[in-house]
Amino acid sequence: MSVHPKQNTGGDANKKIIVWLMAIVIGMFGFGFALVPLYNVFCSVTGLNGKTGGQIALPAVLNVDTSREITVEFVATLNENMPWSFYPDVRSVKVHPGEPTRISFYAKNNTNEKIIGQAIPSVAPGLAATYFHKTECFCFTEQTLQAGEEKHMPVVFIIDSDIPKDVNVLTLSYTFFIKPGSEAAVSLAHNSKHQEL
């Protein structure tokens, strides 16, 4: 190793810079991960991606705006290979903002084994998502259906009276996934590897 005469500084100055820059590097690596909760906060504030908030308690005083009527459509999607049947019991309802409304979705497990599913809600337009509150929903917890079992799963929601005036139709969507890491997910994955051989 050849040693070159250093210019106007020695190794200490380099060390200081390395320490500073490494701190930035580690900080930015952490920042990448911090983007995850930041993004979720950002979504819940702006309704980005139609993400809805968590469960809220039914308010003691309801502030119903009977002058307006909003059509709420329901759609159901099964993610790849989810071997269930899944659809809304009603296609749409008309509601007044502020009024709690109860509807339900139907699901049936078409296989011979128990499957744990997780439903992911989404609201369109995204802007309406922040005004869409659920007091009861099958999406808050995982849903287990035994072989051949069927179920009507309730949702109770309230649309905030503050929802912008130009929103008069919105859509509540659920997509059912096999719960990652659950037995069914593992057995299906195992099954597939087995079949490939």
């Binding site: 983007l35 995850v36 980005l48 993400k51 997780q118 992911i120 996934f177 990652p180």
Partner: peptide, 23 residues
């Protein structure tokens, strides 16, 4: 077993694009 980008576990594929394009 994490679900940063997997909707099934509460993640979001669009989050991937935000983090990726931030880089």
């Amino acid at each position: 077993g994490t679900s940063f980008f997997n909707a099934a576990g509460g993640g979001d594929p669009v989050l991937f694009q935000h983090v990726f394009w931030f880089f």
